[in-house]
């Protein structure tokens, strides 16, 4: 009995150090609209977790809480071993450089060229970089997303799928440890969407990142995620691999797999 206890404790310690993101009993409401109620999640290093939920279920709210764009009502969010509610503005900005965030709307700076879009975080956080090194880094990530030729174009000149890939390049440029994807394939045709899914998977392996992928696109989730968390009624309703959840008999879960 005692032995079991110590093993349990050890594995717990191991787990804590391995987790890059731990969310505990998160609550967030807008007035009477209780969007998140007792939401829990753990993301381990190197793992891709998908959060699946209906439109308006609070998926965007969830990742905006993680990155500090929204302040949760109660609950704790621990990112890379640090509780974000305890951080000063300055420390939070520093932590944010280790988290990539892909916006549902891409949010490219439309007054800047693709190159300037990608250079913006570099100029501000990797100040020591010379112009040559900066250029090399920009071309490297652009080549990785397959869009090296667009470097001097403006975002408006690009198609939706291209913009998504540029936005992905921008989230990758500071070598983040965690990437939060907000519906990376929504609004794209299935073929382009598939390309993006493959890219997410590849980049995750290449840059050795952990990812939280918010989506309701099953093919994207299947292609990218190791594990799925279902966000229903503001909490983590069910979890498991794609295959496990597909066998789930609960009607609320089942509707996603029909």
């Amino acid at each position: 009995m005692e032995q079991v206890l110590t093993i349990k404790q050890e594995s717990k310690v191991l787990e804590v150090t391995e987790n890059v993101l731990v969310i505990k009993s998160l609550y967030k409401s807008f007035g009477e609209n209780h969007v998140l109620a007792d939401f829990n999640l753990e993301l381990r290093k190197g793992e891709n977790v998908a959060v699946l939920g209906k439109s308006g279920s609070g998926k965007s709210v969830l990742i905006k809480c993680i990155i500090g764009l929204l302040v949760p009502d109660t609950g704790s969010i621990n990112v890379l071993g640090r509780n974000i509610e305890e951080l000063s503005i300055h420390e939070m900005d520093e932590l944010r450089t280790k988290i990539g965030f892909l916006f549902q709307s891409n949010a490219l700076y439309d007054s800047m060229t693709v190159r300037e879009n990608l250079e913006f975080p570099l100029r501000r956080h990797w100040i020591k970089l010379s112009a040559g090194e900066r250029d090399k880094k920009v071309m490297e990530v652009l080549t990785n997303v397959g869009l090296a030729h667009t470097v001097d174009m403006m975002p408006v000149e690009l198609s939706g799928g291209m913009r998504k890939r540029i936005a992905l390049a921008r989230t990758l440029i500071l070598d983040p440890e965690i990437i939060l994807y907000d519906e990376p394939t929504t609004g794209l045709d299935p073929i382009t969407g598939k390309g993006i899914s493959t890219l997410i998977k590849e980049m995750g392996e290449k840059y050795n990142t952990s990812a939280l992928i918010i989506s309701h696109d099953m093919s994207c989730i299947r292609a990218t995620a190791d594990r799925i968390v279902m966000l229903i009624d503001g909490r983590c309703y069910a979890g498991g691999t794609y295959e496990e959840l597909r066998e789930n008999k609960d009607p609320k879960v089942k509707q996603f797999f029909e």
Binding site: L69, R96, F103, Y109, P121, R124, L174
Partner: peptide, 9 residues
């Protein structure tokens, strides 16, 4: 928001 998220105030 994108600017804030990238660590620029």
């Amino acid at each position: 928001d994108a600017m804030e998220v990238s660590g620029t105030n």
